[in-house]
Amino acid sequence: MPLRPLSPIESRVLATLMEKARTVPDSYPLTLNSLVSGCNQKTSRDPLMNVTDAQAQEALDSLKLLSLVFESSGSRVARWEHNFQRGVGVPEQSAVLLGLLILRGPQTAGELRINSERWYRFADISSVEAFLEELQDRAEEKGGPLVVKLARAPGMREQRWAHLLCGPVDPGEHQSEPSTAVSGHLEARIETLEKQVAQLGATVRDLCEQLGMSQPGHSE
């Protein structure tokens, strides 16, 4: 039986559980408070959301009816786990890619490979592409495709992929800009590199002064 389209909050709750199970296993299963914090965090999320406790609990209740999450036993405080792979019927690698697409928005295969480092280590981009194509070509009797390849955005060499767990996506959508999460990640890396270059430049100047040498690029 095909899975009904999830709401944006349901998908965010589900993917947050998937993420935290891999990145902070010591804190997993999650309490409602931890889950809400994960849903609303400002990093690795596109779009940013402001999910309330009541909205998260409602999403958990509906996801439980779909057998996609369950409440773990043996704890004084309610804690929640995902059941994504079994509930959707996909292997681990496919679950990782879908979770990342839910949390971070459309991404290229290369971006997915980089962003999956803490979840699962893919051998190469070809491996990522193979699982994406498998998800795109998923048979109707298994529930149909779970991802779609978007039209190439201006200025981008590679096409990006989007998930279909919240329903159909227009392949022409999201053409104008890369995902904000990816843009923010690139900006942060550039800023870090600029600081490192500045520090190296200062170190070189100090060494040149100590050795009585002219600085690179400057003549006596």
Rank of each mutant, 00 (worst) to 15 (best):
L3P: 08
P8R: 02
P8A: 06
S11P: 04
A15G: 09
A21D: 12
L30T: 05
L30I: 07
N33T: 13
L35T: 01
L35P: 05
S37G: 07
N40E: 13
K42I: 14
R45M: 15
P47F: 06
M49P: 00
N50V: 10
D53K: 13
A56Y: 01
A56Q: 12
E58D: 11
A59V: 05
L60D: 04
S62H: 10
L63T: 02
L63G: 00
K64H: 04
L66P: 02
E71F: 02
G74L: 07
R76Q: 15
R76E: 15
R76V: 14
A78F: 01
W80T: 04
E81K: 08
G89T: 01
G89H: 03
V96A: 06
L97K: 14
G99K: 12
I102N: 02
Q107L: 15
G110Q: 14
E111Q: 11
E111V: 00
E111D: 07
L112K: 04
L112V: 00
R113C: 08
N115C: 10
Y120R: 07
A123D: 05
I125M: 10
F131Y: 14
A139T: 09
E141M: 05
P145N: 12
K149H: 07
L150I: 06
L150W: 11
R152L: 08
G155R: 09
M156E: 12
E158W: 12
R160C: 00
L164T: 00
L165I: 11
C166M: 12
G167Y: 14
H174L: 05
E177Y: 15
P178R: 12
T180P: 00
T180C: 09
A181V: 08
S183T: 04
G184R: 13
E191V: 05
L193K: 13
V197W: 03
D206P: 01
C208M: 07
M213H: 08
P216N: 01
G217K: 11
G217E: 05
G217L: 03
S219L: 09
E220K: 02
